[in-house]
Each structure stands twice: as C-alpha cells, then as structure tokens.
C-alpha cells in the first residue's frame, strides 16, 4: 500500500490580508506559512492507511525551495519520504501543477496505490488538481471525501450529500481528494522533527505550461465593516442582550 500525498505551501493570513503593491500576491513579509487543513488531513489519512495496511508514504509539493518546510513538517508527522518540484515561487495554474505532478508520479519507480490530495488548495481554491492528475494518469478519482476505507484492491469513499453520504467504490490505484473532518491530524513528535531535518528530499525541476486562465490582479472581498453596538460588559449585559434577542423575534417576549 504505497501512498502519495500532495500538499501546498500557503501563507497563514491573520485577521486581515495585505496585498503587494502590484496586487499580484499576498504580502507575506510578516506571515508564517502552512498548508490547507484539508491537506493536513490528507497527510494524516496517508499515515493512518499505511499504518494499518503497511507500505510506504511519500509527500510531494510543487513550489519554491522554501516549501521544504512543509515537506519536513509532513515528515515530522511520520511521512517516509519527500519530493520537491521546485519552481521560482511564481503561481502555477491548475493545469501546469497537475501536469508536473503527473509527470513526477510517472517517474517514481515503485508506483503508488493511492494518491491523496486536498479537496481544494487554501489559496487558489481551484478544486481541480486532483482530477486533472487522475485523468492524466488514467486513474479513477473521487473528490471531497470525508471517510475512506481500503479493502482488497478497492477503496470505499464517502462524500457528504444532502445531510447524508453518497458511498463511492473505486478500484486501486486511485486518486482521492479529502476534506477536513475525515480525521483528526496528529501532532509531529520531537523525534519526528529531528528525523525530518536530516531526511533527504528528492528535488526535480518541472517545466511550466500555459493556461487558459490568466490572473490580472487580486483584490480584497467586501467585508462586513460594522460598528458594533456594545451591549455592556460581563454578566450585567445579560438583560440588554435578552432585550435584543426579543427585538429580533428570536425569543418569546
């Protein structure tokens, strides 16, 4: 059971986002970096599945050299090996990213039984890299998975639909993208961190390709800029809050 998991380094924005003057990127000067919660869960799922079925785990990212940090974090959680598809850090389209990931997968000698992705990357929200990799490699694929089980050469995957689940079956090897909530990711151990620092990382340099979607600029979404009416402080505020709830018709008066 060899599992590959694909993650993407993104800035961890605070309460407010600042853009660069050319409006092409988020100003990351003072920001730490992370990966999407969906992808954290994909990493955990890879570890869980390899733990119960045996086999290897590999983490892959396409991005700037600094993305080694995210690969090391995944290895600190327990992932066995890492691949960096190194770029100059400029944003790659979904087509180009998927193309490069598919090429890298073809180039791995052992092959993978399962390729795990996040349902959508935190920054692009393209919802498509997993499917594009699957189509390119000729593998079956399900996205948005909230529960995954493997049994004798196939995967059973549950996706939320209308308050319940639709249950997919697909033969392995397969591509699955997951959503946060599929599991509760573990924390890296100190031992894991030490091991990750020394672990070798396979580096490849992919070639970019053109996309039919070209960014012009980023802009901030309109916010709910409100001036809150302060109803009071501490327990003394309770009567006024109850008054507001009654005014809004949310409790019988």
């Amino acid at each position: 059971m060899n599992v590959l998991v694909c993650i993407k380094r993104v800035p961890e924005t605070g309460a407010r986002i600042t853009l660069t003057p050319d409006e092409q990127e988020i100003d990351t000067s003072y920001l730490p970096f992370t990966i999407s919660p969906h992808e954290e869960c994909a990493v955990e799922e890879a570890l869980r599945l390899a733990g119960s079925h045996g086999g290897t785990t590999t983490v892959l990212t396409l991005g700037a050299a600094a993305a080694v940090e995210q690969l090391q974090n995944a290895m600190a959680m327990g992932i066995g090996s890492a691949v960096l598809l190194e770029t100059d850090g400029r944003e790659w389209s979904a087509e180009a990213t998927a193309g490069a990931i598919a090429d890298a997968v073809r180039g791995q000698p052992e092959g993978f039984d399962l390729l795990l992705f996040g349902n959508e990357a935190a920054d692009t929200g393209d919802y498509q890299v997993a499917v594009r990799v699957a189509v390119s490699l000729g593998l079956p694929c399900v996205t948005g998975v909230k529960r995954l089980e493997l049994e004798e050469g196939r995967a059973v995957a549950r996706r939320e639909a209308g308050g319940g689940f639709e249950v997919f079956e697909l033969p392995l090897p397969a591509v699955v993208s997951v959503k946060e909530g599929i599991n509760l990711p573990r924390y890296p151990s100190l031992q894991g961190r030490l091991r990750a620092k020394k672990a070798p990382i396979q580096r490849l340099t992919p070639d970019p390709r053109a996309s039919g979607l070209e960014k012009v600029r980023l802009l901030r979404a309109p916010e709910r800029g409100r001036r809150a009416e302060i109803l009071g402080s501490g327990a003394d505020a309770a009567p006024r809050v109850a008054g507001v709830l009654r005014e809004l018709g949310l409790v019988a008066s």
Binding site: T124, G212, L213, R220, A221
Partner: peptide
C-alpha cells in the same frame, strides 16, 4: 473567489 472567499481575483479566461 479565492482563499475561500476572503480574496477575489480578476482574471481573463480564454478558450
């Protein structure tokens, strides 16, 4: 929408 809707992107879509 990008970033879950906290940012917007203006882009040109061809094809």
């Amino acid at each position: 929408q990008r970033w879950g809707g906290s940012l917007l992107e203006e882009a040109v879509l061809a094809g």
